[in-house]
Design a protein around this nucleic acid. Sequence first.
DNA 1: GTAGACTCGACAACGTGGTTGACGAAATAG
DNA 2: CTATTTCGTCAACCACGTTGTCGAGTCTAC
Lengths: 154, 154
Amino acid sequence: MAEQGSGFELPLLLFAGFRTLIDALHTELARQGHPDVRPAYGFAMQAIGIDGATASELGRRLGVSKQAAGKTVDRLAALGYAERVDDDTDGRRKLVRLTPRGIDSLVRSAEIFDQLRAQWAATLGQNRLASMENDLRTVVPTDGFRLDVAGWFG
Amino acid sequence: MAEQGSGFELPLLLFAGFRTLIDALHTELARQGHPDVRPAYGFAMQAIGIDGATASELGRRLGVSKQAAGKTVDRLAALGYAERVDDDTDGRRKLVRLTPRGIDSLVRSAEIFDQLRAQWAATLGQNRLASMENDLRTVVPTDGFRLDVAGWFG
DNA sequence: GTAGACTCGACAACGTGGTTGACGAAATAG
DNA sequence: CTATTTCGTCAACCACGTTGTCGAGTCTAC
């Protein structure tokens, strides 16, 4: 209340909201058999998608270099969430595909996010939550933004 | 609008809002003579505060180890934003103090954040923005949360 | 059909932000 | 006086990003 109207608080609240959701997601994800999925991995797997992608394409989607994307794929592969498959029609390309385990984590993430949103809706009311989402949509640039949280911040 | 009610969109919107504010801050900060302040540095300087702090205390405030805090102080010191001062009454302690340049960046940050909030208020309306802040306060845990964004995410 | 340009994935080196573990020095508790 | 705690630092390591380089494969133009 002392910080009412302080410009300092707004970014903190937005980040706290983001972090609250992501932490709740990963707590539940861990409980459902995915204890070693980090926030960054979730975003990367989301970017890989069901159809898969090459490392270069993944880099473009995430807004990072192809080298950084390649390293992320290494970690995902080491954990059994993704795999590299040679492309028959192009000897240079290696398609990165999610394993069944990777797809499972993605499906569960979507469900958990829906449940979390429902909790917020129950607390704030559907209208208030929808207003918040609409207002955020108005005020953030519409073009896709970069998801390289760790690298961006530090 | 296709994503209306999608649990996936909410965290993205919150993060995009956070990032939009932080990016705007640093663009303006760079214009005002602080081009090499990174988001992480701003949070660290905020935690150091006007009165200064020891590296261990800084670590506690940021939620990271004293070693990590010490490294952050190194980078801040290298850029001329902070300095270490021996404590006369305790031979172990070294107080980390912001330099005038460090304080200047903090003062300007506060002003810029206020201006950015005013822009949001002009776009959304005072009431809508205040509602958003109130709703976020309702839904995020009240206890102080960790500011180690980079380390948390990745 | 082949020469040049482009793309792909990988390698190396580095910067930044974290972690543990260990350690000497200084303060404090008994 | 001794035992414990705390402070700052050093060293090693990991995660996530960067740039530069490179061989190999594909595509385009002549």
